[in-house]
Amino acid sequence: VTLFVALYDYEARTEDDLSFHKGEKFQILNSSEGDWWEARSLTTGETGYIPSNYAAPV
Rank of each mutant, 00 (worst) to 15 (best):
D35V: 09
D35A: 10
S19H: 06
I50K: 00
F26E: 00
N30S: 11
T14G: 15
W37Q: 03
R40W: 08
S31L: 13
Q27V: 15
Y10W: 10
P51V: 03
T44A: 01
L18E: 00
T43P: 01
T43N: 09
P57D: 04
I50M: 04
E15L: 11
Y49P: 01
L3V: 14
R13C: 13
W36P: 04
I28R: 03
A56K: 10
H21W: 08
V1L: 13
L29H: 05
G23D: 05
F4K: 01
G34I: 10
R40G: 02
G45C: 09
Y10G: 00
F4I: 07
K25S: 07
S41V: 07
Y54N: 04
P57V: 08
Y8D: 06
T44E: 01
E46F: 10
T2Q: 13
S19D: 04
N53I: 09
G45D: 05
V5A: 05
L7W: 04
T2G: 13
E24G: 02
T43V: 10
L7K: 06
T2V: 13
G23P: 01
T43I: 10
W37A: 02
S32F: 10
P51N: 09
Y10S: 02
V5N: 02
P51A: 03
S31V: 12
A6R: 00
Y8V: 07
S52Q: 07
S52E: 04
S31P: 12
Y10T: 00
L7V: 06
T44G: 02
R13H: 10
E15H: 12
E11P: 04
S19V: 03
Y49R: 15
D9T: 07
I50N: 01
L29G: 03
Q27N: 07
Q27S: 08
T14Y: 15
A6P: 00
S41E: 03
E11L: 10
T14A: 12
K25Y: 15
N30P: 05
L29K: 06
A12K: 09
R13L: 11
L7A: 03
G45M: 07
L42V: 10
S19W: 02
R40V: 14
N53T: 11
D17T: 15
Y49E: 01
L7I: 09
G34C: 10
H21N: 10
G23N: 05
W36Q: 06
E24F: 03
L3P: 05
Y8P: 00
D35L: 11
D17L: 09
K22N: 03
F20Y: 00
T47A: 07
V5I: 13
E11K: 11
E15A: 13
Q27Y: 14
D17C: 14
A6F: 01
I50W: 00
D9V: 05
N30A: 09
F4N: 01
A6L: 03
R13P: 07
F26N: 00
Y10C: 04
S19Y: 02
S19F: 03
E38V: 15
G23R: 01
L29E: 05
V5T: 06
A39D: 01
E46A: 13
F26Y: 01
Y49W: 14
Q27C: 09
A12E: 04
V1A: 13
F20Q: 00
V1Q: 13
W37R: 02
E24H: 07
P51S: 05
G48E: 00
E38R: 09
Q27D: 07
T2S: 11
K22G: 03
S19P: 05
F26I: 06
A39F: 02
H21E: 09
L18H: 03
Y54S: 15
P57L: 08
T43L: 13
A12T: 04
L42N: 04
A55G: 06
W37C: 03
W37Y: 09
G23F: 04
K25I: 15
I50G: 01
V1S: 13
A12D: 01
A39M: 05
N53D: 10
K22E: 07
A6N: 00
A12S: 11
L18S: 01
L18C: 03
V58R: 01
D9G: 06
W37K: 02
L3A: 07
D9E: 05
A56P: 03
F4S: 03
E15V: 11
A12F: 02
S52F: 09
A56L: 08
P51E: 02
P51K: 06
S32P: 12
F4A: 10
F4V: 11
G45K: 04
A39C: 06
W36D: 03
K25T: 12
L3F: 13
L29S: 05
Y8A: 08
N30Q: 09
A6Q: 00
G45V: 02
V1T: 13
S32Q: 11
I50P: 01
G23C: 06
V1D: 13
V1G: 14
E46V: 11
S32L: 13
Y8L: 08
T44D: 03
V5R: 03
E15Q: 11
S31R: 13
D35R: 07
E15R: 10
V5P: 00
Y10H: 05
D35E: 12
Y8H: 08
T14D: 11
F4G: 04
F20I: 05
G48W: 03
E24P: 00
K25Q: 12
L7R: 03
L7F: 04
W36H: 07
Q27T: 10
E38N: 06
T14K: 14
L42S: 04
A6M: 06
F4Q: 03
P57S: 07
E46M: 14
R40A: 06
E38M: 15
V58L: 13
E11S: 10
A56W: 09
G48P: 00
I28H: 00
V1Y: 14
T47C: 10
E15N: 12
R40Q: 11
E33Y: 12
I50T: 00
T47L: 09
W37S: 03
F4D: 01
A56T: 09
L7M: 08
R40H: 09
I50E: 00
A56N: 06
A6C: 04
G23H: 04
E38A: 07
E24L: 02
T44S: 10
F20H: 01
D35M: 10
I50F: 04
T14V: 07
E38Q: 12
K25E: 09
D9N: 08
G48Y: 04
E15S: 13
Y10Q: 01
E38C: 15
P51Q: 05
